[in-house]
């Protein structure tokens, strides 16, 4: 009893530490935007040193500030996109409870979007909406909901067979009432964990389409932009231009992944709502 309580507490503590770390990066990055854009040719191409932790690039910009700023932008875009995306997933997943025809349409949409690689849809949608932050967020939101929607739909389909759902129907309750009153509490843990776990995907995809030139614009200090610029200088031995931003991106993604998994464990344990 005590052991499981401690376990839960440890999980929660870990999740909180990870969250605080991510919040610091995302807020700190906003304040570094000026420093990230500042060029100074007297300090160009410096390798990492005490003053410039991540070195500087060929325009003399501080790579630490640029990395933080880029990560912050990525995290904010990721939060926005996964929030939209998971709401779409929740609505479509629960819509499966409303009738066979709606369920068929939802399933068809999921299959349709899943059958094409994410990145292709992302590029097309992002281009359609004029690239930039808007294009990326809309693109990410419209492509990332499928797997979570499938998980929620599976749960809903299983719930529909439960006696208490059928009884509720015989007591004269409508499908909408049943979906919100009976099914939502069951799919909520999946939803919350799915929301956080969608995040790493969104951040990585944002970075990759920006890297490919279909995402954020070049002036913006985004991780994708930094990485794609650095490829030009890698051959001349300036490894720090790609190394630190890349490592930081991976660390942020791992943090989100760990936080999501912890959250799922906390929410899914049998005693979660006691």
């Amino acid at each position: 009893m005590l052991a499981s309580w401690n376990n839960r507490k440890a999980l929660l503590a870990k999740t909180i530490i990870l969250t605080v770390f991510l919040i610091i990066i995302s807020i700190g990055g906003i304040f570094m935007e000026e420093a990230a854009l500042e060029t100074d040719f007297s300090r160009k191409n410096l390798s990492p040193c005490f003053k410039y932790l991540f070195g500087t690039d060929n325009l003399g910009r501080d790579m630490f500030a640029r990395t933080m700023c880029g990560l912050s932008a990525s995290i904010r875009i990721g939060i926005l996109a996964s929030a939209f995306s998971s709401v779409i997933a929740l609505v479509f997943g629960i819509a499966a409870a409303l009738g066979k025809r709606i369920d068929f349409i939802v399933n068809f949409l999921i299959d349709l979007i899943m059958s094409v690689p994410h990145i292709l849809f992302l590029i097309i949608i992002s281009l359609c909406f004029g690239k930039g932050v808007r294009g990326v967020v809309i693109g990410l939101s419209l492509t990332h909901w499928t797997s979570l929607a499938r998980v929620i739909r599976a749960e809903v389909v299983q719930l529909k067979q439960q006696p208490y759902i059928k009884i509720s129907g015989k007591l004269g309750k409508g499908k909408l009432y049943i979906a919100f009153q009976h099914m939502l509490p069951h799919v909520f843990p999946q939803f919350a964990a799915g929301l956080v776990l969608m995040f790493p995907h969104a951040v990585l995809h944002e970075a990759s389409i920006t890297f490919l030139g279909f995402g954020l614009s070049n002036e913006q200090p985004a991780i994708g932009v930094i990485l794609s610029e650095s490829t030009k200088y890698l051959v001349s031995g300036m490894w720090w231009l790609a190394f630190f931003p890349g490592v930081m991106l991976v660390i942020v993604v791992i943090c989100f992944y760990a936080a999501g998994n912890n959250l799922r464990k906390v929410l899914n344990s049998a005693s979660a709502h006691n």
Binding site: P163, Y164, I167, K170, L171, G172, H182, H186
Partner: peptide, 19 residues
């Protein structure tokens, strides 16, 4: 509302565990 109501043999499965 169905005028014919049934009471189930196992009450545990007849109530939603999250409500």
């Amino acid at each position: 509302y169905c005028p014919v109501q049934m009471i189930w043999q196992q009450p545990e499965i007849a109530v939603n565990p999250r409500i």
